[in-house]
Design a protein around this nucleic acid. Structure first.
Lengths: 210, 210, 210, 210
DNA sequence: GATGAATGAGCATTCATTCAT
DNA sequence: TATGAATGAATGCTCATTCAT
């Protein structure tokens, strides 16, 4: 019985749920599926989380609270130019969304079709925090006359929307970019690179003053 | 009580299904929900479509075959400059996606989580056709030296992803853009305008050759 | 397909439920038990009644609305003396409770331990109506100086409580009265007779003015 | 935190079980409910009693063996007249059933619907002992020519049934007798008085010779 | 075309109980 | 003694679909 064995089953359930919710959606996934994939007794879902929905909530809360401090540091760093800041932020989102692509697929789904308003609020708060950060950098750039005037909400939509489009249409982009969809490592590397280069070009020309 | 009465029920079912699939997802919607909202007997779904899944397929096929000739005309029109062409295409997508926002929400969901590979192929084909069109315009612009070199797949992702982001996070953008989410007409007008202006600025600077 | 075939399954479910609820209690009976005994598909319970609890409610409502007009007639009949009236009423309750002993066992149980306040109200109303009738006859008898002054609420408790005691302790009274508990017909005949004679003696001496 | 701490948990479980079984029935009460109300770990029920059913059995055995010697004394006391004896017995039952009304509600339920024949036998024995006592007094009264001939089984049913009716329809009698059902002390006092006076009047006229 | 009834499989959840510590 | 974790069976209920009329 190894070290982490103790709450292992809870974590196994979270991992299995993340995969299945992403692949088949929340409603398309039964708690039996999750328990089976996690190799854990069905009733443990009730035991640890109370319900299928609260399992989803736990999953979302856990992921949203990951690495938030990294972003705060970046936003407040005075020694980085606004353009570098926004490009580093884009890189950060690309890395994070692609690493946790399954999770972000779930978030996309649930924000549209989920029944739980509690979960929707959770997601809204997260999205709002992200938006405030981008808006702040855009404003800083304009104040320093290095950015031209752009629509902050739509610029945000472009930033997050482009990444989401790539990870949520994974099948198609694997075909288009000639990636073996079974090789997750290869997928990550190639998609990350393409997105980062694209954003560098896109954001520079979109934001640069004059 | 007139001409259209005959196959009215089929259409009522499609309309009800579109709304419910968009709001609650395919799995989150029961055929009972659809029949009730459409005010049509439950068994009619089997009668007209054979199954719930084939109802979805019918819905998708119908919408994908809407207005395709308009796009073909635009692509082939020699008298329009590549830049105008891409901007008109962006306008077309904005109009279409926002007018049929519910439908496109369903497409987003099903491409990720749907079980039917038949439906996924349908969507892939549609997306591919769209991509080929954009790619063609980008190539034409580069050939004519009016576009610089950009990543066509990622540019496509930005175009469709930005629109999808806005319609799939409708709640949040209603808050951010101060739109009454119950006033669909107002929502459409405002979001359409913001997106079109944003694309004009974004695509021009992104594509224009120096 | 005979005449009554149409809603046969609904009735079969009610009959099976009555038997099982009486024998094993509401919580001790599963919907599977009921469906099996009724030889009806499990889902028909949902189809006809909506839920297990509403099946119970339907059962109670049906039985409470049985023969209520008979009692009204008796209460209002001016040609019967108060003493005969109360004795006929006692006879009526004895007949009814013993004929529907299973149902009245369910009522006893649910009034104590049931969770549904809706059902409790239903039962309270029924009990109240019965009490008002008894109270009316007692008052009439006192007005006409043929009854002495008694406690109406406790007299009611004695009337209904005695019958309930006999049917709810069926096992013991079968032993005490030397009745073969499998012979329902014999049980009914003997218990009915004993109760009616007892009430004739008990109520006469309890109520008669000196 | 004192002497009784040791087996306190066992008693706490019994107290909690009595309350819950009376309120929600045996099947309507989960061992989790009991453990929670008793503020005792769930597994302790298995530890102390073996199973939920044996917890019920322990509860019944404990209460049935309470105060039995008091009754024996009364039955054998030669210096009390049969009429006083039966009235004191009625008083005794009224006091005991109302003090332990929750327990007697459980007994009523379990005798009807319980699955355990062991428990049913326990209850039958108890009821039989009670009946023998009443029967003995009735016979003594008849031998001494102070009682007329009555049906002993039905008279027993009236005695116990009247009390059970009042405690098992507590809600209704609280309304009828204008008792605040939250004030247990007031309930006990008023109901006890009403029942005792009623029995004095009822039994005297029912039993008195001539 | 249209419908109410019916079905069997599946759903999330809760149950009483047991076990290792 | 005492506990948190774990289990397999059972719970009430809903599902998409089919069928006789």
């Amino acid at each position: 019985m190894a070290l982490a064995e103790k709450t292992d089953k809870r974590v196994q359930l979270l991992i299995a749920a993340e995969q299945l919710f992403a692949e088949k959606g929340f409603d398309g996934t039964s708690v039996r599926d999750i328990a089976q994939l996690a190799e854990v007794n069905l009733a443990m879902i009730s035991y640890y989380f109370g319900s299928k929905e609260r399992l989803l909530k736990a999953l979302i809360e856990y992921n949203f609270n990951l690495n938030i401090e990294l972003l705060e540091d970046l936003s407040k760093n005075e020694s980085i130019s606004p353009m570098d800041k926004i490009l580093q932020l884009a890189d950060f989102y690309v890395d994070k969304f692609i690493l946790k692509r399954r999770f972000h697929t779930i978030v996309s789904q649930e924000y549209n079709t989920g029944r739980s308003s509690e979960i929707k609020e959770l997601i809204t708060n997260f999205k709002m925090r992200n938006f405030e950060r981008v808006k702040g950098i855009l404003a800083e750039g304009q104040r320093k006359k290095v950015f031209r005037k752009v629509d902050p909400e739509m610029t945000m939509a472009t930033l997050i929307g482009t990444i989401n489009q790539v990870i949520n249409s994974r099948n198609m982009y694997c075909i288009l970019l000639r990636i073996d969809s079974d090789n997750e490592e290869d997928y990550r590397r190639k998609v990350t690179e393409r997105l980062k280069i694209h954003f560098r070009q896109l954001l520079r020309s979109h934001l640069a003053a004059e």
